[in-house]
Every structure is written in C-alpha cells, then in structure tokens.
Write a protein that binds this DNA or RNA. Structure first.
Lengths: 327, 327
DNA sequence: TTGAAAGCGGTACCAA
DNA sequence: TTGGTACCGCTTTCAA
C-alpha cells in the first residue's frame, strides 16, 4: 500500500493538517516542525495523491491534450512541446489521439475534462459551435485553430504562404498547383485563403487539386492530377502530402526539381531525410505546444481575462525539391 | 460547475447510493428506478468523477505509458496501439516522453503511479534492478524489454535477424556491417546477439560500427565508417539509422543498392517514403501496444498470476534498398 | 429494493 | 503555530 499523509503524520508526531502545511505552505509552520515533517515524508517516500487533492482544491495537476493523428510526425513534435512545458509547471499530460474522428474528439474532451484542469486541443476537426459548447465547460486552448473568445496559438499562415509563393515566383514559376487537405480542416481553409492572397499579389496562377487526406498516400494519389494540370510547381497541404507527391514523381521518372518543383508545410523530420530533400515552410511545433500550455496556465490563473491569441513565426526552409522553372 | 451524483440523485428523487447502483450494478435496483436514474443522468450530462471513484475503489481507470522518444515514428505507432486498446477497455492514457533520459524515466513512473492503475513501459533504458524496484510498487508491463517475473511483450528478435541475414546472404553478401544503437538499449544488445548467431549460421562476416544514437543523424554519422569498412551491405540499428545511412550514401554518390545494400528494423512510415525505399524488418508496433495493455489488464485482474511473456511475429519487407552484391 | 452513514486521501477553516 | 473537523465526489457496508 502507498504511504499516505496519515502515515507521515503519525511518524512525525503531528497532525495531518500540519503535514499538509509543511509541504504546501512552509511559512505557516515552525521551521523545526517543518524540517522534521519534510524529512519524515522523504524517508517514507510520501507523495501526495493528486487525485485526492484535486477533489478538494479543484486542481488535479493534470492537463489534457488531443491530437488528430500521432502518425503525422507534426503532432509528436507538438506533444513534446506540451509535455516539456507541462512538466516544468509540475503538470502531467493526458494524451489522446482522435484518429481524425470528430465524434471521438468531443467524447474524449468530455471524458478527460473531469480528470484535468484544462485541455489543449490541437487542430480540432469539430465545428465552431461544438468547440464553443465545450469551451463553456472546460478551460480550453486551441492549437492551429482560431475561435473568438477562446485562447489560441496559430502559425502565421499568411506569412507562410507569402514566403512559399514568393520563393516559387522568384524561381520563375507562374502557374502552380495546390493539393488541398481535408475540407473540415481549418488550417486547410486558411492556407487556401492565404494562397489566393499571395498568388494574387505576385501574379501567380493557382490550380487546386484535391481534397486529399493529410497523409503520404494523399500526395501519391494527387500526383498524377498535378502532372496533368500542366504546372511547373506544386504546394502540398503539408509535408506528408508533399512527400507523397515527390515519391510518385520520382517513381514516374519525373525529375524534381528539374521538371517540377515541390513545396510542403510543417518541416517534419522526414522532409530532410528524402532525396531530393523537401523545401518546406517550417511551422513552430514544440514552440506551439509550449505556448499552448502557457496560455492554458494563464487561463487557469485568471479565468476572466480576455482570451489571448498568439501568432507564431514561420520560416521557409529552402532545400532540394524546388528550383528554377524548366526551360 | 460539473454535475455531480447529488444533482442526479435530487433530480431523480433518489439517494446518491441508488444512483451509483443504477449505473454500476444495475441488477441491484428496480428496473423502473434504474431507467429513471439513467435517463436523468443522461439528460443532465452526468459522468462520474473517476478520480473520486478511484479514491475509494482503488481503481482510477487510467493507464500510464512511457516512451523514450516520440520523435521516432516507431513510438507513436505503439502509442496508437496502446490508446486503441485502452479506450476499448474504457481506460484513459497518461503519456510521457522520457527523452532517452533514465533519471526522468524513474521519476515519471513514480509521479504517474499514483494516478494510474498500471504502467506500460516502452523500451525502458533503466537497469534491471531499477525496473524491479518499480515493479514491486506498481503494476508494470514492459515493451521491448525482457525481465524475469515482469510481464513483457517483445518482438521475435532472433527471427528478425535470421530473416535479415538470410536475405542478404541469398543476395550474395558475405561481409556486412551493423551500426549499433545505444549501449543501454536492451534491444540493441539483443540484436547484436541475434546477429552473431544468424551470421555464424550463414557464414557471413560482421563488422560492428557505433554505437550511435538511434536517430537519423546517427546513421548519417556512421555512413562513412561503413563505407571505409569495405562491406557490401549494412544493417542499421533501426530504420532511422538506416535512413541516415541511405541519405549519406546518396549524398556521396554511392549507389544503393548498386554499390551497397541497406537494411533497417521497425518499418516506420518514412521507410516507404524515400527513394530507393528501405528494406526493413517490420516489427509489430500497434500490435505490441495492444498486447501490452492486454497483459496489464490481466495483471490488474489477477495480480498473482505468473508473469506472461509474449513474443510477437516479425516480417521482412523487401524493398528497393537491398540487391545482389556488386560485381 | 432503498437510504443513511462511514470513509478513501487530502485540504481548508476555525478555534485553541 | 498547531489540531480538530468538515467536506470534495463517490462507493460500500449495514439496516431498514
């Protein structure tokens, strides 16, 4: 059986209340008592039961984290950031993978909400209304999704697209394709919008292909349509899609970037592992995770503060998959 | 404020005890009462607070999961398996990434143990003694690690190496390199042992290079030593290392498999994304996660049953990175 | 078949 | 500065 506060109290010859104080409000107890209690607790290997504590304080010391698909390396990076920051604040993390399933998402939030102080929702697929309903019950922070009156962390999509399109335009491309991700993805809609703006500003023509799943296979499936569209460059919804395009082009003997340039988003690890390596716009991942926890902890401290929206910087990583237009 | 059992009791005109029974032991309450209570609970959106329940039942309904590095796609796959099986059993999962840090590993187990019913330890780096100490306090299941009297799930390493070496031998390779992973990795020691056995049986000579970190960069770093060793094939500790080798070979203009064959372990997603694609021995990942939870739940049911050890099958995936010896 | 009361491991408040 | 007591939300006797 685990050692409880009573065991410590008995061993130290004090009451349970004093043990609590010695551990959580040291200034309220006599130094000698405090030291004795702490010493005893350490010897016995006492660690307070957070669940029991949470019952009365209303704080569990746990955070929830939902991601759509751990199979996409983007999300493990976010998870790492969340974990790192959470542990610094002495929080533990409940993680759930929703498998891109909206219903599962809602159920998991409900399920988790009792056991955690707040939840970081990464790239949620549910509707704005559903989100708002949940946010009314549980402290929520959104990653890669914007919603009025809910704290959120988002990459600077507009800037990301500007960098991508400017790069291609500078290489001489005038007609490019965009392989779209899931229609329910807020990030996809944002990217489309930003792309149109950036393309308009640079006089580049855009052909949309898709929608596809935000996975390698989605890119593979879209590749032939892209080739048929008569473009000299293609931007994938994310790196996985771009890697799928790259793979299919190579398999068909289409030279990259000799005949077509390929560009992705995210900068996941495999982007640097392939040959040619993938030019991509690096989105903050660990950093976004950390920022999400920051906002959540703020929200827990001051529930009534107006919701903060944090926009994080992005950076184009020029690698081997983009080059001058074929001539 | 969340709805509690009292709210339901009041709304349904019964006592809290009856609500509990209606929900957890339906046969003990009158069908009419049961239905009314359940209906009320549903309307109010009542979900029992698992922490409070755990306080009295000793069961939290939570499982812990520790992995060394979510950045290696192998582990997210395992996580998916664990989650899937856990949710089927109505358990939630606490995940922690230890960043390959032994001290963090131990601390996290201690930290988690109060909040969960049991812990799945994936590829733990700590020593046998440390493991055994923890296992005495907390129900533990090991993945990719074997330890007497502790339930464990491991891939059939011996068979994996046999398949790998036989494949290379059949292609004519007689002198191959092995790029070793971390010295503290049990899996690495097992692979070395299995490799020696398999090599001895087939008359293949093995050169060991390393140890390196089990990452892409480790493979990149080892590649030149491998070339200098005068071998015609190389087996990486895992796919990330093999991908690093592949990348560096390609960058140096060394043709794969024309001049050297490359083989990995794990079958992570990026192995199929590169060109040439990576020949690898597929280890069970989701399946291992599921099996781990199975064993843990068994252990919770029958704590005194002798520890089960489950060995899972493996399969060589022949792809583009291995071929006949150069001539 | 149901309700009252006790208690799981803590913390917070009040009184001493 | 300390101890006693009530209570967080829930389950489990025990009696009715």
């Amino acid at each position: 059986m685990a050692v409880t506060i009573k065991d410590v109290a008995r061993a130290a010859g004090v009451s349970a209340s004093t043990v609590t104080r010695a551990l959580t409000a040291p200034e309220l107890v006599h130094p000698a008592t405090r030291d004795r209690v702490r010493q005893t607790a350490a010897t016995l290997g006492y660690h307070p039961n957070r669940a029991a504590r949470g019952l009365i304080t209303g704080r569990t010391g746990n955070l929830g984290l939902l991601v759509p698909d751990l199979g996409n390396p983007f999300f493990p990076s976010v998870v790492k950031g969340v974990q790192a920051r959470a542990h610094e604040g002495d929080y533990a993390v409940f993680l759930a993978d929703t498998d891109e399933d909206t219903a599962a998402e809602i159920g998991l939030v409900r399920r988790l909400s009792k056991q955690v102080d707040g939840i970081v929702l990464c790239s949620p697929r549910m509707t704005d209304d559903e989100l708002r309903t949940l946010a009314a019950d549980t402290p929520l922070v959104l990653l890669n999704r914007r919603l009025a009156r809910v704290p959120s962390v988002i990459p600077d999509f507009a800037e990301a697209m500007r960098q991508a399109v400017s790069h291609l335009a500078a290489l001489g491309h005038r007609r490019i394709a965009y392989v779209a991700g899931p229609r329910v993805s807020w990030a996809n809609r944002e990217r489309v919008r930003a792309l149109r703006a950036a393309a308009g500003a640079t006089g580049v023509e855009v052909v949309e292909v898709g929608n596809v799943m935000p996975q390698f296979e989605g890119g593979v499936a879209a590749a032939d349509q892209v080739l048929a569209a008569g473009v000299t460059a293609v931007i994938g919804y994310n790196d996985l899609v771009a890697l799928g395009l790259l793979n299919r082009f190579t398999a068909r003997g289409v030279r990259v970037p000799g005949e077509i340039s390929v560009l992705g988003f995210d900068d996941i690890a495999p982007a640097a592992m392939v040959h040619p390596s993938l030019t991509t716009v690096a989105l903050p991942k660990e950093q976004a995770g950390r920022a999400g926890v920051d906002l959540l902890l703020q929200l827990l401290e001051q529930p009534d503060r107006p919701a903060v929206r944090r926009e994080l910087p992005v950076q184009l990583m020029v690698r081997g998959s983009t080059g001058p237009i074929p001539r």
